[in-house]
């Protein structure tokens, strides 16, 4: 594949946090890429490093305790320039220009992600004004346009309302409008529908798919919900305790999972019409301060072998673009460096 196709290229990213009880490797040597216009899903349980990955891409890992300890994130801008995000100071003008107008982000909880003291319109216009030197009137027009785009009725009235006057679904729509107001090419959605109920979730997902098609942007969709991933993503990255354990196309993940963790995740999702008992994954996610020896999943793994408890597995490339980090594939796969 030509490097240029990769809009975002995460190479061996390590994001560590210094705590009183030692270094927590929230993200430890992960690699993946996102091509222009495609959606990559990142799945994993709470605390597996999904959100930290997103913050690392935005270069917003909060100091003084958190830092990107290794690896790099490359991003190709609208102008075709390849920027090493991890090398830019977090608040440099260049980084700020990337945030919002190149890479944008939407958050899990639309209530807390919107400032309660500003109206929706002010907040959308604010983003526009941060990036483009436009008048307040222009900003307001753009805000109305965005609200219309995200399917909010009577946008010229709604922009004068405060976040608490909107329902959860509408807030998330406004949030999406805000994130998209400067035409980003890459949108990170950090569990955008977790706080919403199922019908609203479906509407929002539908809206996002529709907008992606219309605006042609790439997305990184972070969630713990496999159902959501199956509708949204083309490729899936499965994370566990800061590692990428499996990377494949969405079909391979669902119909041909290779890593025991992915299999476990799928077995714990109910399927409509099947009367089987759900099989949960045994045990709990290990404490990031006391990670087990060998493979971090080995204590919970049904198929664990001796080596799994001794040595961390390398990643293996299987047929196609299927990559799995598990000793079980020692024979079949091609060991990756």
């Amino acid at each position: 594949m030509v490097e240029r196709d990769k809009l975002l290229d995460v190479q061996g990213l390590k994001t560590y946090f210094e705590t009183d009880r030692g270094v927590v490797k929230a993200v430890d040597d992960i690699s993946y890429h996102v091509k222009e216009g495609e959606t990559v899903g990142i799945v994993g349980e709470s605390g597996c490093g999904k959100s930290v990955t997103a913050l690392s891409i935005m270069n917003l890992v909060q100091g003084p305790r958190g830092r990107v300890a290794g690896g790099k994130i490359m991003y190709t801008t609208k102008g075709g320039e390849r920027v090493e995000i991890t090398a830019l100071p977090p608040y440099s003008p260049k980084m700020r220009a990337i945030r919002g107008s190149e890479i944008s982000m939407i958050f899990q909880e639309p209530m807390t992600a919107l400032n309660p003291v500003y109206t929706i319109g002010e907040q959308i216009a604010e983003t526009v004004c941060l990036h483009q030197k436009v008048s307040k009137k222009k900003g307001r027009e753009r805000a109305i346009e965005m609200l219309e785009l995200v399917g909010i009725a009577a946008p010229s009235r709604r922009i004068n309302e405060y976040p608490h006057q909107l329902s959860g679904g509408m807030r998330q729509r406004a949030m999406i409008g805000m994130a998209l107001s400067c035409d980003p090419r890459f949108l990170i959605a950090d569990e955008p529908t977790t706080a919403l109920d199922v019908t609203i979730e479906a509407q929002i997902l539908d809206l996002m798919l529709h907008l992606q098609e219309k605006l042609g942007m790439a997305m990184q969709f972070i969630t713990h919900d496999l159902g959501v991933i199956s509708t949204m993503a083309k490729r899936v990255v499965v994370m566990y305790t800061g590692h990428v354990v499996e990377k494949a196309s969405v079909d391979d993940i669902f119909y041909d999972p290779r890593h025991p963790y992915t299999k476990g995740l799928l077995a714990s999702v109910p399927t409509l019409g099947r009367q089987e008992r759900l099989v949960p994954i045994k045990g709990t996610v290990p404490n990031m301060n006391e990670l087990p020896k060998g493979c971090y999943f080995s204590p919970r793994c049904q198929e664990a072998m001796d080596i799994c408890h001794q040595e961390e597995p390398p990643s293996y490339q299987l047929e196609g673009d299927h990559i799995v980090k598990c000793w079980l594939w020692e024979q079949e796969g091609v060991r990756l460096p």
């Binding site: 700020r96 990337i98 919002g100 944008s104 807390t112 992600a113 400032n115 500003y118 983003t127 941060l130």
Partner: peptide, 24 residues
């Protein structure tokens, strides 16, 4: 607050956040 993070994620500077979000 998440809206501060959100504002940062959309390109706000630290000074802008101090004035626009904190002071307000």
């Amino acid at each position: 607050e998440e809206y501060v993070l959100c504002s940062k994620a959309l390109g706000a500077s630290q000074f802008y956040i101090a004035v626009k979000h904190v002071l307000k």
